[in-house]
Amino acid sequence: MMSAWNKRTIDGVLLDITGVLYESGTGGGTPIPGSISAVKKLKASGIPVRFCTNETTTTRRKLVEKLEKLGFKLDENEIFAPIPAVCSILRQRGLRPHLLVHPDCVPDFEGVDTRNPNCVVISDATHEFSYENMNRAFQLLMTLDKPILFSLGAGKFYKEDDKLVLDVGAYMKALEYATDVKAEIVGKPSPAFFNTAVHDMEVLPDRVVMVGDDIVNDVGGAQACGMRGVQVRTGKYRQLDENHPTVKPDGYVENLAEAVDLILCKK
C-alpha cells in the first residue's frame, strides 16, 4: 500500500549523505545496505537528485572520492554543502573570516581573505574545538563593533562509529550565549540553503521530497520550505524521534532503499 507522502507528484529528490547513504566511522565508513543500488535507480529514473549535506570535515572533492570508494557515483556539482555557500556570502559581503573549522576542509576556503578578520566562521571542527580555539573566536567577536558569526549547520549531534558525538550546533550555542551574537546558519536547516538546491533542480518545492536521518535539520528544515520530509530509520535516528514535540515527518522508511522504491512505485 502506498504511503501518503508519495501519492503526490515528485519532481525532485534531496538526499542527506551521512546516515542515509552510509554510516560514518573509521576506515571511511560503511554503505547502508541497499543505498548504493537505491541511488543508481533514482538517478536512472530521470528524477533530478541533489545531495544536501552539512558535511564540513572535508572538501567536496574529497567527499566525492570517498563516496566513490564506497561504491556511489556522484558528481561534485550534485552536492550542496555549506562551505561553498558561505564562501560566496563572504565574498559578496566583503567579509574576512576567522576560521574555526576542520583542517581537512580548509582547501575549500582557498581565495578567501582571512587577514585582519571581521567575522567568525565555525563548522564541525571536531578536535579543533579546544578551549583555546573557542576562546579565540569568542575574543574576536567581543572586539568587533559589528560582530558576525556564521555556523555551517546547526546540528546537535551525529553518529560516528555507533556512538553519538557533538556537532557544531552545540558550540554555536556556546558562542551565541557568551557574546549575545545570533549566528547566521549556512547549511541545513536554513531555508536559503534548501532553496538553492531546489532552484538548481528547476522544480517547485511542493514537488520535492527530502530524505534524511535528522528529524529537525533534514525533515523539519525541508518542511519549513514547503517540501515533504521523510525520515529514515538509519544514521542518527532514534525511536524517540517518532514522538518529537514539533516536527512530524511526512513519512518514515527503514532505509533509503525503501524510500526510493516508494518514490518510483508510480513510474
Rank of each mutant, 00 (worst) to 15 (best):
C87D: 00
R93Q: 14
I89P: 01
Q92C: 02
G111A: 10
N133L: 09
K62V: 07
F138A: 02
T58D: 10
T56I: 08
E76G: 00
P117M: 08
T56P: 12
F72V: 11
I79G: 06
D113Q: 03
F72A: 14
G46S: 06
E68V: 11
P48C: 03
E110R: 13
T53P: 01
I47L: 14
A125E: 10
P97I: 08
N54P: 03
N135R: 13
S130H: 12
H98A: 11
L95V: 03
R96V: 09
R60L: 02
E55N: 13
S123A: 15
G71R: 09
S88C: 08
I47Y: 12
G111H: 10
M134D: 04
E68Y: 07
L95W: 01
N116R: 09
H127K: 15
R136T: 15
L74D: 00
G46H: 07
L99A: 03
V121C: 14
K69Q: 14
H98T: 04
V112W: 07
P103R: 09
R96C: 07
D104S: 13
L100T: 09
T114A: 06
A85V: 06
P107G: 09
R60P: 03
R91H: 11
N118D: 15
P82G: 07
T56R: 00
R50Y: 12
E68I: 04
M134V: 15
P103F: 00
L100F: 07
S130C: 05
N135F: 08
L63T: 03
C119Y: 09
P117V: 10
V121E: 13
C52P: 00
L99Q: 03
V101E: 08
F129P: 01
N118P: 10
N77Y: 02
S123N: 04
I89Y: 04
T56E: 01
D104P: 00
L70T: 12
L90N: 05
N133S: 13
R96L: 04
P103A: 03
P103K: 08
E110H: 11
E110V: 13
T59D: 00
T58C: 13
R61E: 15
R136C: 10
T126R: 15
A137G: 02
C52S: 10
L67W: 06
S130K: 13
N133V: 00
S130V: 04
V49M: 06
L95Y: 06
R115C: 02
L74H: 05
V64W: 01
N77V: 06
P117S: 09
R115Y: 05
K66I: 00
T126L: 08
G94N: 07
D113M: 02
Y131H: 13
Y131L: 15
Q92D: 14
V121A: 11
I122M: 13
R136V: 13
N77I: 01
M134S: 13
D108I: 05
S88F: 05
L90S: 09
R136L: 14
H102S: 07
P82L: 03
H127L: 14
K62I: 05
N135M: 08
T53L: 12
E76D: 01
N54L: 06
E76S: 03
N116C: 01
C87G: 02
T57E: 12
D104R: 04
S88D: 15
K66T: 08
G94K: 02
L100E: 06
L70D: 14
P48L: 01
H98R: 14
R61Y: 04
V112D: 09
A125V: 12
